[in-house]
């Protein structure tokens, strides 16, 4: 059994929270640069260049890319041969608390009804799974409210098929329009059940932009959906254009014989995800 101290998890998560919010990933920068070449709208191209400039300012001047530094979502894979000395959940929460305070990140978590801010960006959202090996792998994903609010879940009848899935994805993107800060990345979860489809949709966003889906069946499906969502004309910031979304990512698994669950998790252009391995 390999031992991992809770304290090292706290520090790694804190550092990841700050890095994720200040340094836009290379994959997203490259996707935005490609989008400048694809966009036909002059206003759209101007916006895409400003987003690249924004990311450079954030990285150099050490301020967040976006003021909405999100709810902290943590995908955690714990190796079966690894043992955490201390409390894993508490360590994740303490890491977020520390990172959001020391990194001057906005605390964006509140009570649903009183709307009183919890003050330290906790509680966090944790998706934990046990995997082979002796490592602890954590993806820190700050998720903003604007794009999350435009996300949708559909329990389709099996007869809806691929055509029904496409219709709902395009409808979700078109209705969201300018609200989720396009150009967006569309996370699509197909199958599983009600909550699993949503987790698949969010998890699909962890894959770096520009890298192919490891499941060859899903590659043409992603391409087809991307073509369709970019026909909506929403464009950068919803002001019209060809680049409504930078990518569509799909994760899929079998489902109940009665169901065709579909979750559409919209991610804004500030797609922040940092992976750490302990």
């Amino acid at each position: 059994m390999r031992e991992i101290r809770a304290e090292s998890i706290v520090n790694a998560v804190s550092d990841a929270a700050i890095r994720a919010n200040l340094e836009l990933g290379r994959d997203v920068m490259e996707a935005l640069e490609r989008a400048v070449g694809l966009e036909e709208s002059e206003v759209g191209r101007d916006i895409l260049k400003k987003l690249l400039e924004n990311a450079r300012i954030a990285r150099e001047e050490r301020i967040p890319i976006c003021q909405d530094t999100g709810v902290a979502v943590l995908f955690v894979e714990l190796g079966r041969e690894a043992r955490v000395i201390g409390d894993l959940y508490q360590a994740l929460e303490e890491g977020v608390r520390k990172g959001y305070e020391q990194g001057f990140l906005r605390k964006s978590v509140c009570d649903p009804f009183t709307r009183k801010n919890t003050g330290d960006n906790t509680p966090v959202i944790v998706h934990l799974s046990l995997v082979p090996g002796d490592r602890l792998r954590i993806w820190m994903v700050p998720k903003g409210g604007g794009s999350e609010n435009m996300s949708r879940l559909f329990m389709l009848p099996p007869s809806a098929g691929w055509a029904g899935v496409k219709e709902k994805v395009v409808q979700t993107v078109a209705e969201a329009g300018p609200n989720p800060c396009p150009p967006t990345i569309i996370g699509v979860g197909i199958g599983g059940d009600f909550e699993q489809s949503a987790i698949l949709a969010k998890k699909s966003l962890l894959r770096p932009l520009g890298s192919p889906n490891p499941d060859p069946r899903l590659v043409p499906m992603e391409e087809e959906l991307l073509t369709d969502v970019n026909r909506t004309g929403v464009g950068p910031q919803g002001l019209g254009g060809r680049v409504t979304s930078l990518a569509v990512h799909i994760l899929m698994m079998p489902c109940h014989i009665a169901s065709l669950p579909l979750a559409v998790n919209i991610q804004c252009h500030a797609s922040r995800h940092v992976e750490i391995v302990l």
């Binding site: 709208s41 395009v170 409808q171 078109a174 909506t232 004309g233 464009g235 919803g238 002001l239 019209g240």
Partner: peptide
């Protein structure tokens, strides 16, 4: 950028209309 003016114009509708290749939402 001005999206809605005193005449009731809407830049989102006008801008998206120009590039839309499918039926509207």
């Amino acid at each position: 950028v001005v999206v809605n003016d005193v005449l009731g114009n809407d830049l989102y509708e006008e801008g998206q209309e120009k590039y839309r290749l499918t039926e509207g939402p």
